[in-house]
Computed example of a mutant assay.
Amino acid sequence: MTIASPHLGSSEAWTDAKLLYALEEVVEKELNRHLKVVRDWMPHEYVPFGDGRNFPGLFEDGEAWEPGQSKVSEVGRIALVVNLLTEDNLPSYHHEIATLFGRDGAWGTWVHRWTAEEGRHGIVMRDYLLTSRAVDPDKLEQFRMAHMSEGFESDNRHSMLHSIAYVSLQELATRVSHRNTGHQSGDPVCDRMLARIAIDENLHMIFYRNLLSAAFELAPDLTMQAVRDVVVNFRMPGHGMPGFERAAAQMAIGEIYNLRIHHDDVLQPVLRYLKVMEIGGLGPEGLKAQEELGCYMGGLNTEATKFDEKLAARKARMAARAAAG
């Protein structure tokens, strides 16, 4: 795909405003493609409402929550709470991207459409969690209040390109996390629900990834630097929620999201699709960013291998204990 661009003397001549204008046609094309392939779905169709019953409070027949009521595995419950609290911060995410991309034209249409589609995810997940009694409803609401009271501020405030690079990876990371949570949940209903959410997240990733590809054609040096910065400093949007570090560690051990998954299933697919390490014609800063990105990926793979070895050793110890017991 070749994009007509303004006559700019160097990468430094690009501003966010100029990039937004130059990418408007690509956004419109990707929006139209997205609307052709996306399928509407009803959150209530994925929730087992027949399993629901009242909680204590205003209802005399309310039954208190107990862990044994849940069909979901322990690591599945942990991941579901993290995933839902991430989705709950949608108002903050909408504010971030609407402020950055604007509310007019194709950019604005996409911002609102993306927000509407993401809204379904929080709806269906909360209905499922409460109806199936997968988690403590009181703690879930306390966590939601604490997390949303903090709000959300992106780590990628350097430029519009940083934000596009981030969401290209974050949408795929979210898809992978949802899909693996479903696999590890132990509940086919939960697995089916999260598989449906993952389809949306994948389509969102494709939108942003294709936009990032177009940005590489327009401003290769600046885009390479943005990708380098985002990859090296990547954090999931839920990092500020209560107890996130402990939950992330448990999700890593439970093989929902860890270094190996991050390297193999998130970073590598996007970078490989964009052929980031093969892009030529870069200036000094772009070449430096490309080299640093390659070095970082090599180091991350080494760290992921160390994690794999520790996880395998842990599994062996647990298997030995189970056999001895």
Rank of each mutant, 00 (worst) to 15 (best):
M160W: 14
E96V: 05
F101Q: 00
A146W: 09
N89C: 04
D155V: 00
A165H: 04
S92C: 03
I123N: 03
D127F: 02
P137R: 05
A116Q: 10
R103T: 09
A64C: 12
L129M: 13
N156K: 15
I164F: 07
V111N: 02
R120K: 11
T115P: 02
D61Q: 14
H147L: 10
S70I: 11
Q69A: 15
N54G: 11
R144Y: 10
T131Q: 02
Q142I: 13
L85M: 14
A79H: 11
D104Q: 14
R157A: 14
S159M: 04
K71S: 06
A134R: 06
E150P: 04
V167Q: 02
N89Y: 06
D127C: 04
Y166Q: 05
L169M: 04
N156S: 13
N89S: 08
V135H: 09
E153K: 04
G68I: 07
W110A: 09
T115G: 11
G68W: 06
L58F: 07
A134D: 10
L129P: 02
F152W: 12
S149L: 07
V111T: 03
P67K: 02
M145V: 15
A146R: 12
R103M: 13
G76K: 09
M148L: 11
G57K: 08
S132L: 08
A64R: 15
M148S: 12
D138I: 13
L85E: 07
R120Y: 06
W107V: 00
L80F: 04
G105F: 11
D136T: 07
L140D: 05
R120T: 03
L130I: 08
A165C: 05
G108S: 05
V75S: 08
E150S: 09
K139E: 15
E74K: 15
T131G: 09
Q69G: 13
V82K: 12
A79M: 09
W110K: 01
L130R: 02
L169N: 01
W107T: 01
Y166S: 00
E96H: 02
G151H: 07
H162V: 01
S70P: 10
A106F: 07
G151P: 08
A134F: 06
V75H: 08
K139M: 14
L169H: 03
F59D: 12
S73E: 03
E63H: 10
L58N: 11
S70E: 05
V72T: 13
G68E: 11
E150C: 06
E60A: 12
L100G: 01
E141Q: 15
R133P: 10
